[in-house]
Amino acid sequence: MDIVVLVKQVPNTTDVKLDKNTGNLIREGLESIMNPDDRNALEFALQIKAEYGGTITMVSMGPPQAVDVLSEAMGMGADKGLLLSDMAFAGADTWATSYTLGKAIEKIERFDLIICGRQAIDGDTAQIGPQVADFLDIPQITYVTDIETVSNKEVIVKRRLEDGHERVASQLPALLTILGGANNPRYPNIGGLLAACEENAPLAAWNAADIGVMVNDVGLAGSLTHVIKTYVPKFKRQGETLEGTTAEVVRQLIQHLGKSEGASACKAVAATCRLMADTKQEGI
């Protein structure tokens, strides 16, 4: 069972700075981590490997320092790492990213499964998995919470829906996207981490020429969507501080809520407001 795991290095911070010209994130000075869902994806891959053998190849697109997530993955037990790194890849939307990843995976000799995280915390788009699957013309199952069985021809997984779950079988090769929290990812092994730092570690870097793409088809130039504006959301709130005794402020609050459109969806609030109104009338 040869598995490709897609992994992304993402910034781990709430202190977000953006490039004024491109609207893209400025990554300098931010701590970078392996995208959390990708860790769950790798954990499943490692469990499958433990049971059925085979190799795990990590593929990541990113700047040179993204090699750290590949090293970390190798510390967890992945066999090989492939970093797609080229100035030309920068600023890619999901279309250009999945094209780049797809072209690279095509060059990998064989795979039975591609596993990736459901989504990355810096974009939350959840698009790369399905788009890579379509690029490679293989079936996809998204929102996977459990992998039940794997055979030469088929994988059976559990997939989360909003109101329950499905058990889905897919022919191989297939692509799965894993929901965060689906399993408990292991910590990397120190020996594995150190081995990944060595010159002869099985890590490779490919640029645009290596995967055979034109620079105009990748990165910002190859993207179909473009960020035209970014802004920090302003909170439009009433910002009213209620004053009085405890009983008074609570009463005011219920009345405000009761008058608000939508907030009256809460039955108790509506009922209490009606009661308050009735009591008032009686008083008059």
Binding site: Q65, V67, D68, S71, L83, I190, A196, C197, E198, A201
Partner: peptide, 18 residues
């Protein structure tokens, strides 16, 4: 080919655990 810095990688990994 790029390689990770061993000291940073180990520190980050253990720090995450801690």
């Amino acid at each position: 080919m790029y390689r990770s810095d061993a000291e940073q990688l180990i520190r980050k990994s253990i720090a995450r655990f801690v």
